[in-house]
Nucleic acid binder design. Structure first.
Lengths: 329, 329
DNA sequence: TTTCAGCACTATTTTCATTTGAGTGCTAAA
DNA sequence: TTTAGCACTCAAATGAAAATAGTGCTGAAA
């Protein structure tokens, strides 16, 4: 069991360490705890025994362990009000009418990255909820055209098509009409099947250039499913003292530049979730706080990557604020 | 004046330093130069006097100075053939039919970044050569629609428009028709004027929602002019031994993350240009090799950022190869 | 005149020992 | 249960010494 006083002590140590990044010694807390350093040491000893604190070496001050942070996050920390300054900066982005939703998310996360000095990640993906609304082809010259696909949620994808030899515009029109007839109303991720089993056989018979046309539409539709990965403020997390050595920085940068690694931090859970150190699969020295968003048939994850001694209270408040604002839209 | 032998010596020193990143001592070159270290030292001394070599401290080996690299690049280095392996890797990207030109450039540069361990940058911009080919609006629901703009070069830009209150589809059609009539054939960078002085006055009179509509199109057109900035393989340049300290790495990363700084490495000259150390405005410790490309009415810059002891011969060959292949398309 | 062996010299890097400082654990008394 | 006091420990800073890798210069040989 953890007594009230021990909890208070843990809170002080965690918060002090978050601020200073230096192991916390017993003397430093005498004033606040209103007792001698020896007493504090005894309590620290206990907290270490049950795994909430650690020493960096035998005679050093204490540092929260992963379990310690976890305890802090689960039992001690209280949600805070968003501070006025942070709110103001975010609100100017969130209110900006001329930005697409997607850009609003991106910009907000950039701001958060600056405010907190952590790195932010936005993973976006067109969800299967998108239904094809309209397919269109616009001729450019005698060998080129642009295919445009619009979904019912207002997402647009386009693809240039190069047709060797002359384009037979009647055939193109025929194909597009067919696609419109068969595919409009289909969800984005079933399109490829419809395209292959219904469209392909028909145009295979009647359309000379069916090979090229089919491929163009096929890739245009698959681009819709593509995931977007945006990392911003990599430099910020590197300013943290825990990353004070060249090799460690290189490692972290490499991870941020690896699309597969970054994509894998996708969140499934709907709340705001915290993964401390080894709890995340990214890096044992960081904490990742993430949450899912769904808007306009597009779903994704926003995440903050910082040192384990993250300003948990503030960050959660910030992320929560953004999430609520996105969900409102 | 620089004698034949001195030039040979400079070449050896530059190339050795490029490979090892260690100051080159006189002994190391005896075998190749077929003379004693004392003789080499005398020559080195001369090369230092005329500013082509430097010492890192009084008793160290020699390192090429900026002027030394410049001399090497201008007078000594010979263009090389592309090596088979490099060519193969690039060719598979360049031949890939399913990629848009833009992606081909991006992918090629990613490959080059990996091959060379330098960082690559692609700056793209829609050029004013693009003429508006077609403007279209696709309705989504009663408050939303998507505006799509296509240029004669096949570039597409789209923008969601939210109209508070009910959309009067007749009015929208009227507006779009007007825009099509007045703007098709105009170049991208004169569009905003036409929009303001010709379109705005007319729709201001007849269209209820003219404010929102005008703004939507206005931003859609200005998005066309937006520059794209892509940096890839930041981690690669950080592996170079010259960036072996945390603060230096942070500085470099910060520069790569700063859009304004990166944009400013835009190239005007049509050839392949080399900016060594203080010759570039990016960072005194790096060399930037860049070249302009123009394709399909889109122009941009591709650039390689590496340490001053760059593998000049190889890099120039690689960049030249890419440039020729892009220009062919 | 050019080359070069030999030597004195020098700055960096590495190693090792010493000191300093911050903090701990334990104990015995309040 | 608390705490003053003390012995102890490790990391970090400081400093001295040795090892290393080079240089510049000189005077003799080619």
């Amino acid at each position: 069991m953890v007594s009230k006083r021990q909890e208070e002590l843990l809170k002080l140590i965690v918060e002090d360490y978050i601020k200073t990044a230096r192991p916390v010694g017993s003397k430093a807390l005498c004033d606040i705890m209103k007792c001698s350093s020896a007493t504090i040491r005894a309590e620290m000893n206990y907290l270490e025994e049950i795994g909430l604190l650690e020493k960096t070496h035998i005679s050093s001050g204490r540092v929260p362990s992963e379990k310690g942070y976890r305890y802090y996050v689960d039992n001690i920390m209280k949600p805070k009000e968003l501070n006025g300054e942070d709110m103001l900066k975010l609100q100017t982005i969130l209110d900006n009418k001329s930005l697409v939703v997607n850009d609003i998310i991106l910009k907000s996360m950039e701001i958060i990255s600056e405010l907190t000095h952590y790195t932010t990640i936005v993973l976006g993906k067109q969800s299967s909820e998108n239904l094809v609304q309209k397919v269109e082809v616009i001729p450019i010259d005698k060998n080129n055209m642009v295919a445009i696909i619009v979904t019912d949620k207002g997402h647009v994808e386009n693809k240039s098509i190069y047709i060797p030899g002359d384009i037979d515009s009647a055939e193109i029109k025929q194909t597009v009409d067919l696609i419109n007839k068969l595919i409009v109303g289909t969800s984005i991720d079933t399109v490829s099947e419809v395209l292959e089993y219904q469209v392909k056989p028909i145009i295979g018979k009647y359309v000379k250039q069916h090979e090229v046309l089919y491929n163009a539409f096929y890739t245009a539709f698959s681009d819709f499913a593509a995931e977007s990965v945006r990392v911003s403020g990599t430099k910020n997390i590197l300013m943290q003292p825990e990353f004070n050595n060249a090799d460690r920085i290189r490692e972290i940068i490499s991870k941020f530049e690896d699309k597969d690694i970054v994509s894998s931090i996708k969140e499934e859970d709907n709340g705001i979730n915290i993964y401390i150190g080894s709890e995340n699969n990214f890096d044992d020295d960081v904490t990742i706080i993430k949450t899912k968003y769904t808007i306009n048939g597009e779903e994704g994850t926003i995440a903050l990557v910082g040192p384990k001694r993250m300003e948990y209270e503030r960050v959660i408040t910030l992320l929560d604020y953004i999430k609520k604002n996105i969900d409102k839209k």
